[in-house]
Nucleic acid binder design. Structure first.
Length: 496
RNA sequence: CGGGGUGUAGCAUAAUGGUAGUGUACGCGGUUUGGGACCGUGAGGCCCGGGUUCGAUUCCCGGCUCCCCGACCA
C-alpha cells in the first residue's frame, strides 16, 4: 500500500502485487468498512457491510446442507479438558493453541479484581467441536436406524495462534462445522467428497474464486482424520489460501468416544464419521482475490448490494423529476430480484461514486436531469469501469445481463491467473528458483517420506497444499527432492 | 515464543525539555451538486508506569500495543 498526497487529502493507492500485500488488504478492509481491530488480541470487529457478506454465504450453505438432509444444532462453547485428551492425534494438534478457562468468578483484592473460584477441571474454549459433539453422538446413536446422523453447527471458535491476520487467521473466528456419522466407510467417504463439492460450488460459482481440489498430505491433514480433502485458492500475490476442508475421520473418534450402535444382526459397530468446515477466512479470500486499486470488488451473487442508484440534481424542480424516476427504477429492479440501494444522501455524486466503488458494489446506476429528458440511465460497471447509456425499457434485462457477465468474468479471471501462475517442475534447483523468483503454485512429484516434505518447507518456505484429484493422485514419478519413487504429484506453494 | 520496528485527535501526520500544529473526517450556518465542492465557525489528541528535571509528549528504564520477519496455523 502506498499513500499519495493529492489536493491535501490522503488517498490510498492500492498495489495488490507489491511486497506490502498484507498491508494492502488491511487497508482495503478498512476502506470497505468490513472489519477493524478489536481490543481483544487478534480478534476482529466485523461491521454490518462485511457481516452481510457472511450472511449471504450462510444462506447459500444452509440451503445446500438442508437439501442433503443436514440439520442445524448447537453445542457448548466450553469443552472439558478431558474430552480433548481422548483422541491422541487430536490433542497433539490443538493443545498448543487452546484458550483455557480455569476460574469461574472474580474477587476484589487490594482494589483489583482477580480470578477466584478455581475449577476442578479446566475447560477449553472450543478450537473445533469434534470431541464435545461426538460425546453427545454416543448418546444419540444407539441403533442402525439412527444413521446416518447429519448435523451442522454455526459457531464461533478460538485458536490461540502465535500470529494473527485479519480474516485469515484471527484468534476467534466464525464458521460452520458439519459432523456426520455413517454405518459404512463408503458412505462416509462419499459424504466427505460431497461436502467438499458444496464448498467448491460456493467458492467458484458464487465467490468467483478458482480452486484446486485435492487431498492433504499426511503431515498437513486434520489432527485425528484418516484423510483431509481441501479447496485451495491462489491469492493475487501468488500465495495459497486453504479455503475450506472436509475430513474423513474414519473410526478414530467413534472408538475414542464410543459412538457405536447395534446393526441389523445385533452386532455392535462403530460409526464412520466425517467433519467439514468453512470459516470467515473465506471473506479474506474474497477480498484478496478480486480487489483492485480502487478497493473491493464483490461478485454479484454474494454482494450485499448489487446495484447502487445515485440520483443527481441541482434545483428542487430537478430533484422531484429525478426522484420520481429513481422510484421507478428501484421498483423495477427490486421486483426482478436485485438487491439495490438508493443513495439519496445529501452530497455530491462524485463522492458517492468513490465510496461505493471502494465497497465493491458491482453496478452503479446514475439518474440525473439529462437521463430523465432522454428516457435512459447511465450504468457503470465496477469491474471494468465501462459506462453505458441504457434506455429505460432495457434496464432490467441489461442489469441482469451485466451482473451475470461480471460473475462469470471474475471466475474466468481468477482461473486464468491461477493457471498462469502454476508451474510444473521436475528439478529441485528449478523448484527453488521458481518459488523465490516467481511464486505461485508448483506441481511436482513427491514421495511418501515425510522428511522430504519437511526439508522442502524448511528450505523454500513452500508447503504442500494438496494432492490434486485431477492429475495428482496416482500420478507416478520420481520425488523432486530425493529421486525415489513418488506415488503422487503434489501442489506446493507459500501459504497464508 | 525469538529478531526488528512502532505508538501524538476517528483516520493520516508535524514539531517540541516550557500554551502541541496541519490535512481529512465530524457538529453548526450558508452557497453548492453529471467523478472525492467552497466559505465561515465549533468540538476533539501526546500508550501505561517509574526515573531524571523547577518543569517530560519529548531524555532514561520497565511494561503494554500494533506492524513486519521467523516458528505455529483454517
Amino acid at each position: 500500500m502506498k499513500k499519495e498526497q493529492e489536493n491535501n487529502s490522503v488517498n490510498f493507492v492500492i498495489t495488490p502485487r507489491n511486497e506490502d500485500f498484507s498491508q494492502w488488504y488491511l487497508d482495503v478492509i478498512k476502506a470497505g468498512d468490513l472489519a477493524e481491530g478489536s481490543p481483544v488480541r487478534g480478534c476482529m470487529v466485523i461491521k454490518p457491510y462485511g457481516y452481510a457478506i457472511w450472511e449471504n454465504i450462510q444462506k447459500f450453505l444452509d440451503n445446500e446442507f438442508k437439501k442433503r438432509g443436514t440439520q442445524n444444532a448447537y453445542f457448548p462453547l466450553l469443552i472439558p479438558k478431558s474430552f480433548l485428551e481422548k483422541e491422541a492425534e487430536h490433542v497433539e494438534g490443538f493443545a498448543k493453541e487452546c484458550a483455557v478457562v480455569t476460574h469461574h468468578r472474580l474477587e476484589e483484592k487490594d482494589g483489583k479484581l482477580v480470578p477466584a473460584g478455581e475449577l476442578e477441571e479446566p475447560f477449553v474454549i472450543r478450537p473445533t467441536s469434534e470431541t464435545i459433539i461426538y460425546d453427545t453422538f454416543s448418546n444419540w446413536i444407539q441403533s442402525y436406524r439412527d444413521l446416518p446422523l447429519l448435523i451442522n453447527q454455526w459457531a464461533n471458535v478460538m485458536r490461540w495462534e502465535m500470529r494473527t491476520r485479519p480474516f485469515l487467521r484471527t484468534t476467534e473466528f466464525l464458521w460452520q462445522e458439519g459432523h456426520t456419522a455413517h454405518s459404512s466407510k463408503e458412505e462416509a467417504d462419499n459424504k466427505a467428497l460431497e461436502m467438499l463439492e458444496v464448498y467448491r460450488d460456493l467458492v467458484e460459482n458464487h465467490l468467483g474464486i478458482s480452486l484446486v481440489l485435492g487431498r492433504k498430505t499426511e503431515s498437513e491433514k486434520f489432527a485425528g482424520a484418516d484423510y483431509t480433502t481441501t479447496i485451495e485458492a491462489m491469492m493475487q500475490d501468488g500465495k495459497a489460501l486453504q479455503s475450506g476442508t472436509s475430513h474423513m475421520l474414519g473410526q478414530n473418534f467413534s472408538k475414542s468416544f464410543d459412538v457405536s450402535y447395534l446393526d441389523e444382526n445385533q452386532e455392535r459397530q462403530f460409526v464412520w464419521q466425517t467433519s467439514w468446515g468453512l470459516s470467515t477466512r473465506i471473506i479474506g479470500a474474497l477480498i484478496m482475490s478480486h480487489s483492485d486499486d480502487k478497493g473491493l470488488v464483490l461478485p454479484p451473487k454474494i454482494a450485499p448490494i448489487q446495484v447502487v442508484v445515485i440520483p443527481i440534481f441541482g434545483s428542487e424542480e430537478d430533484k422531484s423529476l429525478v426522484m420520481e424516476k429513481v422510484a421507478k427504477v428501484k421498483e423495477e429492479l427490486e421486483s426482478a430480484g436485485i438487491s439495490l440501494k438508493v443513495d439519496d444522501r445529501e452530497g455530491r455524486p462524485g463522492f458517492k461514486y468513490f465510496e461505493w466503488e471502494r465497497k465493491g458494489v458491482p453496478l452503479r446506476v446514475e439518474v440525473g436531469p439529462k437521463d430523465v429528458a432522454k428516457g435512459s440511465v447511465v450504468v457503470v460497471d465496477r469491474l471494468q469501469g465501462e459506462k453505458t447509456f441504457v434506455e429505460d425499457k432495457d434496464l432490467s434485462s441489461f442489469i441482469q445481463d451485466s451482473l451475470d457477465k461480471m460473475q462469470n468474468l471474475l471466475l474466468a479471471n481468477s482461473k486464468k491467473f491461477r493457471e498462469e501462475n502454476t508451474r510444473e517442475v521436475s528439478d529441485y534447483g528449478e523448484f527453488k528458483n521458481v518459488i523465490s523468483e516467481k511464486g505461485g503454485f508448483i506441481f511436482a512429484h513427491l514421495c511418501l517420506d515425510r522428511d522430504c516434505e519437511k526439508k522442502i518447507k524448511e528450505d523454500t518456505n513452500a508447503s504442500t497444499r494438496c494432492i490434486p484429484f485431477e492429475g495428482g493422485l496416482g500420478n507416478k514419478g520420481t520425488c523432486i527432492y530425493c529421486g525415489k519413487d513418488a506415488p503422487n504429484k503434489v501442489l506446493f506453494a507459500k501459504a497464508y
